[in-house]
């Protein structure tokens, strides 16, 4: 696990420094310049931190469900320890993804929360993690807790494809990759956000919200914000994904070792 530990520290440090230090340029000349993305500008840097954190949340959920499945198959309590450790980390990353996303939404779309399909999904994931831990605390015996929480996380996993594949297609959204034809309700909502930003007197919010409205009005072929990463940004982005995944692996390892020690101590005393 030394590899994951030092790998994640090195990569995340590099991504943090590079993501903040590299300047934007309207027409990038070399690898040390990011292009300017209309409507995002400096705020585009958040993609290097927000997306890897959200990605790790989903990885943690899948890992937790997988170990839950292994527990049901083998009845080996060690798998339950791994499952709950992954879920705990998933909850932490889910919270971070929600906060970084809400802040970004405030500065880009004018309000902290817009019930876009992705925002709804991350909210549901938060609720699932909350329900998972509520269920665990309501069960007394070791085996029952392990079995029922594993079943619950798998039942919750059944609904995940609906959020990833179905909802973005039937709802309009603000994230890239949302349903492409903006419906009038979404446009009027974006217009209302822009109006309120103008009323408050904040020029930057109003500008970005009006840009969103304009892009929605363009309609069919244009997603809300065209997001095509330049090669240098993409490399840093992928390193960020790798770094945060390694961070998850390392933290999971530490938590599992700790939980195993606690479990052994508690069974030893009985």
């Amino acid at each position: 696990m030394k590899f994951a530990k030092y790998g994640s520290i090195t990569l995340i440090t590099f991504v943090l420094v590079a993501g903040i230090a590299i300047p934007l340029s309207p027409s990038p000349q070399n690898w040390l310049q990011f292009p300017v993305i209309p409507g995002l500008e400096e705020k585009a840097r958040n993609i290097l931190y927000h997306v890897p954190v959200a990605w790790t949340t989903v990885v943690a959920f899948l890992v937790s469900t997988y170990y839950g499945f292994r527990y049901l198959k083998t009845r080996d309590i060690d798998y339950d320890i791994k499952s709950v450790s992954a879920a705990g980390l998933g909850f932490l990353f889910c919270f971070l993804a929600t906060v970084t996303g809400a802040l970004w939404a405030k500065f880009n779309w004018g309000s902290f929360w817009n019930w876009d399909p992705r925002e709804t999904s991350i909210f549901v994931l938060l609720l699932i993690y909350g329900a998972y831990f509520a269920l665990r605390s309501a069960l007394e015996t070791e085996e029952k807790r392990a079995t029922l929480s594993a079943v619950y996380s798998m039942i919750a996993g059944i609904t995940v494809p609906f959020f990833i594949f179905v909802m973005p297609r039937i709802m309009t959204g603000l994230h890239p990759g949302a349903k492409e034809v903006a419906d009038p309700a979404a446009i009027s909502k974006a217009q209302a956000i822009a109006d309120s930003a103008i009323a408050v007197g904040s020029k930057t919010f109003a500008d970005s919200a009006l840009a969103t409205v304009a892009q929605m009005n363009v309609g069919s072929a244009v997603p809300v914000v065209q997001l095509k990463m330049s090669p240098n940004m993409l490399v840093i982005f992928l390193l960020g994904l790798l770094g945060f995944t390694l961070l998850f692996i390392w933290l999971l390892n530490v938590r599992v070792r700790l939980a195993r020690m606690e479990y052994e101590r508690s069974t030893h005393h009985e």
Binding site: V124, A131, L135, A138, V151, T159, F163
Partner: peptide, 26 residues
Amino acid sequence: IIAAIVAKANTRGTLYPVLSFPILIV
């Protein structure tokens, strides 16, 4: 299925909507 899970827990009344809501949102 959530009722079957909740029936084995201690705090059934409050736990039931908490567990069901995330599953039922879709």
